[in-house]
Design a protein around this nucleic acid. Structure first.
Lengths: 136, 136
DNA sequence: TTGTAAATCGTAATGATTATTAATTAGAAT
DNA sequence: ATTCTAATTAATAATCATTACGATTTACAA
């Protein structure tokens, strides 16, 4: 996976190309897992000991707003994952041991299109948690 | 809604009947919303100014473990809701304005029973977010 | 090359949650 | 009813993720 789509979005929205952003995006492009802000920090600290918390969190939230990253809450922490390369809506099985994910190409909202017309639906979450074949 | 079922569970598991637990359960029995630990604190502080954070959090987590409360993360905070009176599995539409919920009597897992046999499923989450008829 | 808004650094603040220890209390046993 | 004991609570303080802020640096357009 590469980061072209992400840069395309960033450029279009007027964000600058910086080392830190590049590294963060590279980390995401090299994994299929959901990872935490802390994970990013740990990895980046190796090359940039003077890394600022602010830089990580600010960029992660920018990326989420722009649809570059997916965000979810697992065990009390926010977890992120590359999303912008995705070209079709889907959900995830998330392994609680290793963090790996499996895409689930089924969306329950299809079944509920007209089930609650009086309610204004803004978003939804469908996630399955457990252990992947390698972990159990 | 009453709290009998909750006390039944607590007693069976050897937990004692205390004022604080009773008040917490009463608060939940009187609302259908998901509320935060902070909400509970604010309400209880009126009658018990010397209320301890610990008491709230410890009891909430006990209640969740025993299946008395439902827990979910909304806007970065844990939210809780009475669950033990529920006699059938279901999901929720949650109003992001007023916090009220609507039960959704449809579970996507039924469709996925045998979809990913190699994966050990431990739990799942399906929630719909938006605005209820009163709020939009 | 230079000007300027954007981004980052370094650090501190915040806010929710968890931990600690001493005092209190519910419920069982006497 | 009284005593005993383990569970529970109070009153902090600590922790952890996240956010905020002033000072400095940097990307990039003119």
């Amino acid at each position: 996976m590469n980061t072209d789509k992400a840069w395309e979005i960033l450029k279009k929205e007027g964000f600058k190309k910086t080392d830190k952003r590049e590294q963060i995006l590279n980390i995401f492009s090299e994994t299929t897992k959901y990872i935490t802000a802390r994970d990013i920090l740990d990895i980046m600290m190796v090359e940039h000991p003077g890394m600022s918390y602010d830089t990580i969190y600010r960029n992660l939230s920018t990326f989420v707003e722009l649809g570059i990253l997916d965000e979810t809450e697992l065990t009390g922490e926010k977890n992120f994952r590359m999303h912008c390369e995705v070209d079709h809506h889907h959900h995830h099985f998330i392994c609680m041991s290793c963090g790996n994910i499996k895409e689930i190409h089924f969306c329950p909202m299809e079944m509920l299109q007209n089930a609650i017309p009086a309610y204004q639906i803004e978003s939804h979450k469908f996630e399955i948690y457990g252990k992947c074949p390698e972990c159990h």
